[in-house]
Write a protein that binds this DNA or RNA. Sequence first.
DNA 1: GGGAATTTGAACTCTCAAGTTCAAGTTTGC
DNA 2: GCAAACTTGAACTTGAGAGTTCAAATTCCC
Lengths: 239, 239
Amino acid sequence: MSRRDAPTADRPSRPAAEPTASGPDAKAPRPVTRGRVEKRQAILDAALVVFAREGYDRAGVDVIAAEAGVAKPTVYNHFGGKETLFREMVLSSAIRSRESSLAAIDALPVAPADLTAELLGLAHRLAVCFRDPRAWVLQRVLVTESAHFPDLLKEVVGDGTSRITEALAGRLALLGAAGRLDMPDPVRAAAHFFALTTGEVLTRSLNGARPTEAAELDAILAAGVDTFLRAFAADRCGG
Amino acid sequence: MSRRDAPTADRPSRPAAEPTASGPDAKAPRPVTRGRVEKRQAILDAALVVFAREGYDRAGVDVIAAEAGVAKPTVYNHFGGKETLFREMVLSSAIRSRESSLAAIDALPVAPADLTAELLGLAHRLAVCFRDPRAWVLQRVLVTESAHFPDLLKEVVGDGTSRITEALAGRLALLGAAGRLDMPDPVRAAAHFFALTTGEVLTRSLNGARPTEAAELDAILAAGVDTFLRAFAADRCGG
DNA sequence: GGGAATTTGAACTCTCAAGTTCAAGTTTGC
DNA sequence: GCAAACTTGAACTTGAGAGTTCAAATTCCC
């Protein structure tokens, strides 16, 4: 059971972040300058590490505070409690992960000399994004706790994965218009590109539970790109 | 949720020999036969449901016992405790899931009249296996608790997923020998078949956290089989 | 029917973690 | 330098859940 928050805030001037009522407006209204340095970010980083390692329930606020080099009441000063800390950590990680994935897709040339090599490069860049602890903690933790944080699920996935898929679909459509690819549906092709590359990596590593060696990663991605091009390359029938 | 868990019912200060707090007939009529029948299986089934719904840490043995229509000490009579119960539940579910997947693969004809239709049928059968709560609880729970139960991970995955992939690879190799498929590597093709069909279903449903409608399921599987055949059908270049 | 084995309800102990309080120290703004 | 705000360590309260105990009730097998 999650007792939401004990709003007995008789602390003099702490607005005490509430459980994200609706949207990002509940962000800290105070200026960035704080009592000392950026304890807040240190706590968020520590929360990422500890939540990723222990899971939501087993992670103790004491441990997070210690990992951040901060006292426990400081955690409760910055964030209302464990649940709010978890939410903010997940959201900030999701934004960071999404941006890095979008950047990886943006780096895909629209008129590549070697299409196979460029798609392989994209797969590697995406794999790095997905293998970043900051990213796969999302995969694991969202899968785990989605039933208890349905709003997080909606917020992260709703404008997360689908936006990434659409970004890749746009790139692939350009390659289709340039006569390099032949796809019935770019969105579908984009989803299948993810399934064959990063999806396979995640599956093989059990969502990050088992580390994947570099050689195995290369083989998985090369195989995925190969299958993708067997299906969607414009010159797939010998050209 | 069971109807038995009034959280304030068993405080130490309450002498209470009668359930006065609840309504007159608020007590659920115990439908399960009392005595020693197949309590064990009932507990395992209930554990599956509750662990899937709550996760390992949040799942209470009290709740599992109530869900099974059994008293809490009975759970401790049959299984040593929560951890043993979890292990046995996961292992039995894994065996059941693996057998059903292998059966689905065995039902794939080696000389089908309509290859597309047969592969689509296989995808549907596999999707049913993967959408069965008994199966995706494994996906979710193993991902979640793999760090705390590394032996379970090894046991279930070690001779689970790979055996299934190899079974499908064997079937695909037969289709290749019969001139229906053209694959550089049947094992790779099998892995990609899973990635494009059941993997996509799992991704879209967030490992079972979000229900998938039948129409969406059909579309995902049809698209996956289509891409698979674009890549590996022997007559993919116009036949 | 009778006796052994088992199940049951309910209360109990114990442990662990969330969240709080507070007096004292540290930082920042001015 | 001074006050206000922030941070800290440590002890504290609270609450939930794992695991246990026990007498009474029930079922199984013969």
